[in-house]
């Protein structure tokens, strides 16, 4: 049976560093299996998050050989096992221990975004009529598993640490899902412009590349949001018509 070396970020704070672990690599294994094997064989304290082991919960995010990925969906046979496989925690968030980071900031950002506000029901029984194609437009965004890999890769957060001023791609996807929800009546464009800092995004598309749910974050969520923000706040013609409309 082949063996492989996993070079894993271990420890806390200043004393953290890489540590090598050797374990068996068997057919079909994913990186998360290797981490579990190491926990069972040599280091039960090795910390990581996981739940579903099937790419559905977005818990097991890490950087594998420098690429932000889900450990449960990264097969060992896609990696070069003749050299150590490097596993590190995400870099955009405060480190807790080993592969675990403090992602609580994301939950606070989401809470600050105005919630869903539906229009009045269409039918007397309190239900709505929605066409499948309108549902499908938004379903892409609703596939998000909140793995925060897009937040991890985005340079505005990772390198420029704009956490307080920039909501990040995950929350643009969230906002786009609400804004394009066929029943929603709220307006969050002001929030995106100001607190969300959508202007910081310079459309590098790195977030789209890492999204394990293959959400076209930049083209389908961020760019349309940016356009709407522009229309609403900067475009003189739209503004003129808006004033005109409210005066009527």
């Amino acid at each position: 049976m082949a063996q492989a070396t996993f070079r894993i970020w271990k420890g806390q704070g200043d004393s953290a560093g890489f540590k090598d672990f050797v374990t068996d690599a068997t057919v079909g294994m994913v990186v998360l299996d290797a981490v579990h094997q190491i926990q069972a064989e040599s280091d039960p304290t090795l910390a990581c998050r996981w739940n579903c082991k099937a790419g559905k919960c977005g818990s097991c995010s890490a950087e594998i050989n420098g690429n932000p990925r889900l450990m449960c969906m990264t097969r060992l046979d896609q990696l070069d096992l003749t050299v150590p496989v490097i596993i590190e925690p995400m870099k955009s968030f405060p480190h807790v221990r080993d592969l675990v980071t403090d992602v609580s900031w994301n939950f606070r950002v989401k809470k600050a975004i105005k919630p869903f506000k539906p229009r009045k029901p269409d039918a007397p029984d309190g239900t709505w009529r929605i066409q499948q194609q309108d549902v499908e437009r938004v379903q892409e965004f609703r596939k998000c598993i909140e793995c925060f890999l897009c937040q991890d890769v985005c340079h505005v957060l990772r390198d420029h640490h704009k956490h307080p001023e920039f909501a990040g791609p995950r929350h643009f996807v969230y906002t786009a899902a609400l804004e394009m929800h066929p029943l929603d009546t709220e307006n969050r464009l002001g929030q995106m412009k100001d607190a969300g800092g959508i202007g910081y995004c310079n459309i590098t598309k790195c977030c789209t590349k890492v999204c394990p749910e293959h959400i076209t974050i930049t083209d389908n969520a961020i760019i349309p949001l940016k356009e709407r923000v522009t229309d609403e706040y900067y475009d003189p013609i739209t503004r003129f018509f808006k004033i005109f409309k409210t005066n009527q």
């Binding site: 539906p118 029901p121 239900t127 709505w128 929605i130 066409q131 499948q132 549902v135 938004v138």
Partner: peptide
Amino acid sequence: VKELEAWGALFDRTKDGRIL
């Protein structure tokens, strides 16, 4: 289930726009 829809859930639809 209808309450979930009122809170934002988007289920797949029937041809006449109801929950499939």
